[in-house]
Amino acid sequence: MAQLISRLRLWRGFVLLLAGIYFAVPLGASVLFSVDNPMTKTWSLRAYTQLLGAPGFTDSLRLSLELAVVTVAILLLLLVPAMVATRLGAPKLRPVLELICSIPLVVPVVALTTGIIGVLRWGPDYLSNTPLFQTILAIQNPTFPVVLVIAYVLMALPFAYRSIDAGLGAVDVKTLVEAARSCGASFPRAVFSVVVPNLRTALLNASALTVALVLGEYTTASILGFTPFTVWIAANGKNDGQMSVAVSILSLMIVWIVLLLISAAGRERGRKSAAS
């Protein structure tokens, strides 16, 4: 038995090493390429400094982060009550909800975007004499394109659904809600005070996946003509090989930092609630 465990450990280490090499070598090579100055045979951060100083960097990054925050908020506000309600009141509807949330997986992003373009084109003609006309215009405001949030919510639905569903599966939602209600909590308060805190990890995972999706999404934003961070870095990395690699590295770093911050926030909150 001990021999088997030792072999398994060895095998695990080997697999981890292979995976590490698979991810680290291209990244390391990219970093080296982006800081290499072949003329002077020295290292230089020129590509990064040019990138950070380029016009539109801060605006596009801020737009992407804002889109991510709003997308996460809307997604969770939509999904959590719907999923808790189906678990408690209509368990037979769970497969229906799962199917609806999985549809974006089989709809190509280009097809979704084409559909959105169709609606945006059709809207002004048919809604010109209604209050919805202003709405159609407002959701395309380049300062904060709500239409992108709508698209991102749809795209993130399958990932967020699975994450929250796994979280709900790990706790006995029905009994917890009933226990809270027998202690004098109204239904919404029972869900907010008892169910949501026990879904913290699942909600963080759903948020992290959504943030990663929003910060990395290019197709829809580009076709619809908006400039979040991904579109900006693609446009600014075209003319210079080193800068385009620097853009990729920077983009990865930003996504990683945001995900680490989300994860750290969750852990910190967990520690605080454990200590209180």
Binding site: V171, E178, A179, V194, P197
Partner: peptide
Amino acid sequence: IPAHKRDAGMVFQSYSLFPH
């Protein structure tokens, strides 16, 4: 009367303590 206003304490079959 809704459950939370019934003034009835309940102990459940499954462990129902709030895990957090």
